[in-house]
Nucleic acid binder design. Structure first.
Lengths: 191, 191
DNA sequence: CGCCAGGTTGAAGCGCTTCAACGTCTGTGG
DNA sequence: CCACAGACGTTGAAGCGCTTCAACCTGGCG
């Protein structure tokens, strides 16, 4: 891992660079080919991962058997089933790569070791949950307050990288609509 | 506060009863009359509160000036602007009582004092965020995976107390629909 | 080159929204 | 104590946007 990556990661996690380096030291790298099921819903998978490069989606299947994207993640995002990490129980979603992806994997045990060694990491652990919460909150606001068209615009503003890397059929279910609707929304927005 | 309340609270927070008592000791009680704006969006308000008895709603105003319920809370729920608590910044929602409500208020400072005195409370702090996250996650799943009608059924199963205590006009925006739609959904479900 | 997945487009349908009218209940003042 | 005003919920009718289903186009990959 290059120094540049560690600096970006430190900024993203809001911790000093030397702490980020400490964290990276207990992680392992993994390269995963595109279209690979990384986590299977129902099986415990308590590792978290930082996406160095690539694209990943977290999704579930609804009562009608439809594939629904819960999260779309790209460079410098965290991925993994955070609920599984918290509860040590089975994960509730599937996770797949969309592109070839470089992950930096952090096991639950590694985090707990860090926490035992130095209280800094317990504060960091608080911050992880806080971040997960505020992101989830923002998503609820998005779904409650905006129309599908506004949600697409917001996504385009907030993360053009997602629009660029991820096929529309996955973006549409992330926005809570069907693929033809997203196609028509895009058409409307051009004019 | 009666012992019975402390036992319920301990169960709800997943901490021993003696710890719950320790927490209550640094809280203050407040009785708030119904229809009272308790927290104003935009102003910092970093206290959290445990609802001993009553009903409260957390809401925002969308771009069209509509009132949208973000959370509906009843007995033994936590309320307050958790994001404001985390960031120490302004709260992003209004909070109002719907009924006369008995609150147990916990200031940010009181929590931080506890954390300084005993690492138990830092672990508790982690758990608070974890709980906030898992609740937010469940709400996202609800909005993404289910139709308005299913969401109403789910709410009815999960929390009849909300249906009983809170007027439909607030429930409808919580479900992401308009009051007449909720009225018709209820009618359909009777048959 | 040809297949196939992904995206677009048209047409029809459905459910939620909107607007307005009407009951019902509550609480408040005369 | 009654009467009335206002808030809340319900209901009807019309409209709109997303869904559904199917056909077609395009580009990537074997």
């Amino acid at each position: 891992m290059k120094d540049q990556h560690i600096i970006v990661m430190a900024a993203r996690l809001n911790i000093p660079v030397n702490r980020a380096a400490e964290l990276v030291a207990v992680c392992r790298f993994e390269h995963i080919k595109k279209h690979t099921r990384w986590i299977q819903a129902g099986t415990p998978y308590t590792d978290l991962a930082y996406i160095v490069e690539g694209a990943v989606r977290t999704f579930g299947i609804d009562d009608d058997g439809r594939d629904i994207s819960y999260l779309l993640q790209v460079n410098n995002d965290f991925t993994g089933d955070f609920e599984s990490f918290i509860t040590n129980g089975p994960s509730s979603f599937h996770i797949e790569t969309i592109l070839d992806t470089h992950l930096l994997l952090i096991s639950r045990a590694a985090i707990q070791n860090l926490i035992q060694r130095d209280p800094f990491w317990l504060h960091f652990r608080v911050q992880m949950s806080d971040l997960a919460f505020t992101e989830a909150k923002r998503r609820i606001e998005d779904l409650l307050l905006y129309t599908p068209e506004q949600r697409y615009s917001n996504l385009l503003d907030r993360s053009p990288e997602i629009i660029r890397k991820i096929p529309q059929k996955y973006i549409s279910s992330y926005l809570g609509i069907q693929p033809p609707s997203l196609s028509r929304i895009r058409k409307r927005l051009i004019n």
